[in-house]
Structure formats: C-alpha cells, structure tokens
Design a protein around this nucleic acid. Structure first.
Lengths: 200, 200
DNA sequence: TCCTTTGTCTTACGACTGTATGGCCAACAG
DNA sequence: CTGTTGGCCATACAGTCGTAAGACAAAGGA
C-alpha cells in the first residue's frame, strides 16, 4: 500500500511491489470505470507507471486481466480464511457469506471485479478456471462447516451439507450480481432467510 | 427471424426488421466472442450489413449495447410469460426458474448476455435500470404465484412470498453466473433443493 | 412533377489499441 | 574493473475504435 520505498531494498522486491501495485490498479480501473476500459495504458496511468513497465510485468493485456482477477480472488479468499468461526452454525455461515457480499466500498470493489470476470469467463476459458477454483473452495468451506455442525447434533440429519452449501453459494453470487448494480438491496435479510430455511 | 423479405413491404417495416436483425447480431457477438468484442463493425459484419447501417439504426455503440440487452431481456421475459402455470406450486416455480437457467444453447446464449450486461451495469448506470426492471418483474411474478398458493392453503402461512421469491431469484442468478462459465453444473438439482427448502 | 424522407453504403478522421523494440540506469557477479 | 541482468521508460507501428459526413437509390406526399 505504502508508496514510501527504502532505497536500500533489493531490486527484485521492488519489482514485486510494482507488479502488485499494477494488479491493484487494474482492479481499480475495472471497478471504477468498467471491464471494457481496462487497457495497458489506463492501468499504467492508474498505477503511476509507464506503459512499458506494465508490459514488463504482464506480457499481454490478457495476463493483466488474469492478474486482476487473481488479485481479487486472493483478497476475498483471505478475508474468508480470517473469518470468525465461533458461535451457532447459522451465525458462522452468515458471517462467512457476508464476507463475499458487496456490503461496503472495499467489498463492493471486489464484487464488481468478481462479477465482471465471472461473466467474462463464459467466453474466456482461462478465466473460467480461476472462477471454478474460487467457487469450489467457497462451497467446500461452507459444506465442511455445515457437516461439522450436523455431526455435532446442531443440525438435523436430513440436511445435506453439500447441497445446502451449493445453494448458499448460488444465493451469495446472485445477491452479489444484483448488489453491484443497485446498492439499496437488503441483501442481508434475504441471505438470512435462505440460511434459516436451509439449516432448519 | 426469417431472412426472406417481401419486395412490396413498406420501407419502415424493412427498417424495423433490419434493426432487429442488428440487435440479434449484437447478442450473437456478445454470446459467442465476449462483451469486449462488441463494436459497430463486428456487429455489422455479423448482421451482414455495412457499418453505416448499424449507425443509422443505433446512433452510438452504447445504444447498440442497450438494444442487445433489451432484446435479451425481452426474449427471457416472453418465455417466462408463456410458461405453463398448471400443477403444484413447487413444480410451477421450478418450471419458471428453469426458463431463466442456461440449460440449452438458446438459453445459454441469453444467459451469457444477461450476466455480461448485469455485470457491466455496475459501472454503466443506464444498463442498471433495465437490469432492475427485469429482476423486479421476475421477483414479482414468483411472489405472486407463491402468494396465491399460500392463500389456497397449499403452503403454510409462515412462508413469506416476497422473501421466498427474492431468495429464489438470487439462486437462479447465482446458478446462471456459475452455469455460463461451466456447463457441467447440476443446476436443476440445486434449484430444486432451494425450492423445496423455501416452500416447506 | 419535384421535394422530402428513409435506408443503405462508403469514406474519412483522430484517438486509442496491443505489442515489439531499444535505450537508460542501478545492482550484482565475475 | 567489466559484463550481465532486471526494472523502467519512450517510441514506433499497424490495426481497430467510435463517429461524422456525404453520396446514392427508392419511395411517398405535394
């Protein structure tokens, strides 16, 4: 984040920092101006570097796109990982799902990139791979939590963890798709209704 | 749909047919090649007309985008309207939701455009308006069906039609977002699970 | 009949695109 | 010390972009 850089730092670490700054700038451009505005030059301007530098770190525009996507998925994933897992299963699942919803500016930024590139994945197979990974990981995490709660007797045996998790991920992505376009949605209420209905 | 045109037909109707053909070509381009490939020239080539003709019917690229979106929303909406409303409420709702899922090539085509432009709506407010309309209409339709079933005693009073409808629309859009990227999803099973859980 | 409208096409222009190439400077290896 | 490498930048090129402008044909109304 910080622009201050020690003059003593190694060249390689400087390069890595710049690469990350460029990826972050790519995310900013997509989130603020839209998917179709992303170009080598717009990202370079946003990052405060020359076009050549962007080229140096990401060979092609496509590589830049992938970096923006990976950067976003990383951010969401790391927030999921650091979530609080204490309390009733409904509350834990709610907290987890809310990490992926556009409920504040930062999450909104990430969600815009997520939806833009998920949509683009339908015609760009190399993006589809990353999207699938992220969805699978999220689903597996939720399923595992639900399964644990069921074996602990907190949920009835009739509740299928895999199916419930899949439905919840769909709900979250659907709410995200709506939420990025209009901010005034009451996503949390709908999410809670889905969770209570599924985890009877 | 038909390319055959009577030489006696009025000029205006000819123009309207061409305009629709261009909008259809725009949908094809977005669905096949991606959102970022759409341009006046690519659509013109796809429609088999000159760039000037596209310009004549749709002043700007943005107007073309909007037409593609409206065309798609119309197609989905008309399929929803002509859905079979007979049978148990769970089955009716399932049939309705499946009309909006990418379960065959035609629906897949529409869903790609729907997701691409829903995602774009987050940074293009004029698209957001259309997206909101479509979502609202779908939600209201489902809610109305659920409400009718409840007053008919087919569903318990504890079931809130508006909330259930909102959750279902979110599920459908979430499954759509996943389905356009990977075809091998078992969307129908997940949809059915959500419906049975919500309409206990 | 002439004039206006409408649909279609061609051409043109400036801006922007992705990317290849090469130069400059600092840091490191020998 | 010299040679090499890596980060960064400037430039160049061929192509595409959105859009404006004008030409031509057909048709309708006066």
């Amino acid at each position: 984040m910080s622009v201050v850089r020690s003059p003593r730092s190694r060249t390689t670490s400087l390069g890595a920092a710049t690469a990350e700054r460029i990826a972050d700038a790519a995310v900013t451009v997509v989130a603020r101006d839209g998917f179709d505005v992303l170009s080598v030059r717009t990202v370079a301007r946003e990052a405060g570097v020359s076009g050549g530098t962007v080229q140096h770190h990401y060979d092609t525009r496509n590589a830049l796109l992938l970096a923006a996507f990976a950067h976003t998925v990383d951010a969401i994933t790391s927030r999921l990982i650091h979530s609080d897992l204490a309390g009733a299963v409904q509350e834990v699942v709610t907290r987890l799902c809310e990490q992926a919803l556009p409920l504040d500016d930062e999450r909104r930024r990430e969600c815009i990139v997520w939806t833009a590139l998920s949509a683009a994945a339908s015609t760009h197979p190399e993006l589809a791979h990353w999207q699938r990974r992220a969805v699978t990981l999220f689903t597996a995490t939720l399923a595992s939590i639900i399964r644990d709660a069921r074996t602990a007797g907190e949920l009835p045996q009739s509740c299928d963890p895999d199916v419930a998790a899949a439905v919840l991920v769909a709900v979250v992505d659907g709410l995200t798709l709506h939420g990025v376009a209009h901010q005034d949605q009451n996503s949390t209420a709908i999410l809670w209704a889905a969770i209570t209905a599924l985890l009877e």
